[in-house]
């Protein structure tokens, strides 16, 4: 029984060792069209070139976003990333939306390999990235 505190201590220390998360750095930014107007909706995602991991953020109506990898706002891993922007505006005519999507991002930006957006997330400094996309008219 005299060993009990020791065993408890070892157990508690081991319980703290399960974290295998990669280090992330804060990333925020803005998605804009060439004329400077913001993309008003959608999801932006960064895929790391070095690790099989992605960071995601929701685009606010002013075009701004904050990325999260493991938590909502913890940023992305440092290094090079491919970026995609995904907008889903489904209109089947059954509900009369009041449309306020602004311009639609060209759907080519929704696919890795086609988006052509590459960015570098810096390990040291604050990352604020302005990402420029082109628009398209959805039928």
């Amino acid at each position: 029984m005299r060993r009990l505190p020791f065993i408890l201590l070892v157990t508690l220390v081991l319980m703290g060792c399960g974290d295998s998360r990669l280090k992330t750095v804060p990333v925020s930014g803005k998605v804009v069209f060439p004329d400077g107007s913001p993309a008003r909706t959608g999801t932006i995602e960064f895929e790391s070139r070095d690790f099989p991991i992605t960071a995601t953020g929701q685009i606010s109506p002013d075009g701004s976003f904050v990325l999260g990898t493991y938590e909502s706002n913890d940023g992305a891993v440092a290094g090079f990333h491919q970026v995609i922007i995904l907008q889903m505006v489904i209109n089947d005519g059954t509900i009369n939306h009041s449309m306020d999507h602004g311009k639609m991002v060209d759907p080519k930006f929704a696919t890795y390999g086609l988006s052509g957006l590459n960015v570098m997330v810096d390990r040291e400094k604050e990352n604020y990235l302005v990402i420029e996309v082109t628009s398209v008219t959805k039928k």
């Binding site: 505006v89 509900i95 009369n96 009041s98």
Partner: peptide
């Protein structure tokens, strides 16, 4: 209400 500010009518 969607993030873009779009909204559906009350349904």
């Amino acid at each position: 209400r969607f993030a873009c500010g779009c909204e559906t009518p009350r349904q």
